[in-house]
């Protein structure tokens, strides 16, 4: 008999604990007391001398603890809701695929230029780098979607009270919509380049054919671990930009403003990065001249041309940025005509 009582007490405590641990701390004590009272009442109703079967029946009737806790919570808790879930899965598949492919290419290049000690080390390195990259890709993408979800639920909770059918935005014209494939392709490309920069920066080299192939890195690899952080920031901005395009799906002013903000940030960082001497291999010009690469005369002022090259590069970056910003604004203005409300 005593063991029956102990069983009833234990299983009740366990049940209540499973319910209240899922609820806000401030409500736990109150709900605990109320549930304890309820279970006691339900037991007494069944039998004056309740046993094992009685408490089991009572708790079964109350249902799974997690489901009971769900009923106590008003809102379902989720990171990414139904509105974005299918897009999230779609992008996730592509990003994970692109990351895996990029890592495979980059690691292969890395092993070709600097072979690992033995196969075992190589495989271990390959697997750990691959897992790390995939985990990072997954985490950042999920964080991005979670932020959008959080920001947007406010809109859903407080919808415009004076909603009118005439406020409905027009069905976008074919050319007005941003096809999913464009930002996706851009994201995949950026990811691939980003992975190469991180895993195998040595492939960005000047390859001088001759009796033996001479490979001169373009970048200063001696403190690459610091430089690459800045490059990664630029890549991240570029990924964010494509993410914004994907979410909006059509050209309008909000999109244009968002894209320009990212562009300005990205431009400033890129210029700082490209003009910093710490980015480039300081020995590039002298090494290439000394081996008479591509039939260069020894008095050829290569450094001057390399400097010019960097300037041209900066110019191109600025131009690209301006074109992108102007285009997105032009389209926003052009299509804002059709955004007007119905009359």
């Amino acid at each position: 008999m005593e063991s029956q009582e102990k069983y009833i007490k234990d299983v009740t405590d366990r049940y209540i604990y499973q319910v209240i641990k899922r609820l806000p701390v401030s409500q736990r004590e109150d709900i605990r007391k109320e549930l304890a009272g309820l279970i006691e009442d339900m037991l007494a109703e069944r039998s004056p001398n309740p046993g094992r079967e009685d408490i089991d029946a009572v708790l079964t009737e109350l249902g799974r603890p997690s489901e009971l806790a769900d009923k106590y919570r008003d809102v379902k808790q989720h990171l990414i809701g139904p509105e974005y879930f299918s897009l999230y899965i779609f992008v996730l598949k592509i990003v994970m695929g692109a990351t895996a492919l990029g890592m495979a290419i980059a690691m292969a290049v890395g092993f070709a230029t600097a072979p690992p000690e033995n196969i075992g080390v190589g495989i271990g390195e390959f697997i750990s780098s691959m897992v790390m990259a995939l985990v990072q890709a997954f985490a950042w993408l999920t964080l991005g979607f979670a932020l959008v979800e959080r920001y947007n639920t406010k809109k859903i909770k407080f919808p415009d009270e004076h909603w009118k059918p005439s406020d409905l935005p027009p069905v976008p014209l074919e050319k007005e919509t941003i096809k999913r494939s464009d930002p996706i392709a851009a994201m995949v490309f950026t990811l691939l380049v980003m992975i190469l920069f991180n895993v195998a920066p040595q492939i960005f080299s000047v390859y001088v054919p001759g009796d033996t192939l001479t490979v001169v890195p373009i970048f200063d690899l001696s403190h690459w671990s610091e430089t690459v952080v800045v490059f990664n920031f630029v890549f991240a901005l570029s990924l964010a930009k494509e993410f914004i395009r994907l979410l909006f799906g059509r050209y309008n002013m909000k999109l244009a403003v968002g894209i320009s903000v990212v562009n300005v940030l990205s431009l400033a960082t890129s210029i700082a990065l490209l003009t910093s001497p710490a980015t480039w291999n300081p020995d590039l010009a002298s090494t290439l001249t000394s081996i008479h690469a591509f039939g260069m005369a020894s008095d050829f002022n290569l450094a001057y041309y390399l400097d010019l090259f960097v300037k041209v590069l900066v110019g191109l970056v600025i131009l690209g940025c301006i074109v992108d910003t102007v285009t997105v604004f032009a389209r926003a203005v052009k299509f804002s005509v059709s955004e007007k409300t119905l009359t």
Binding site: L38, E61, L62, G63, E67, K71, Y72, D74
Partner: peptide, 12 residues
Amino acid sequence: IEAGTLYPLLRR
């Protein structure tokens, strides 16, 4: 009404 439904409803 099941108790599991009623109790959360009362709190709400």
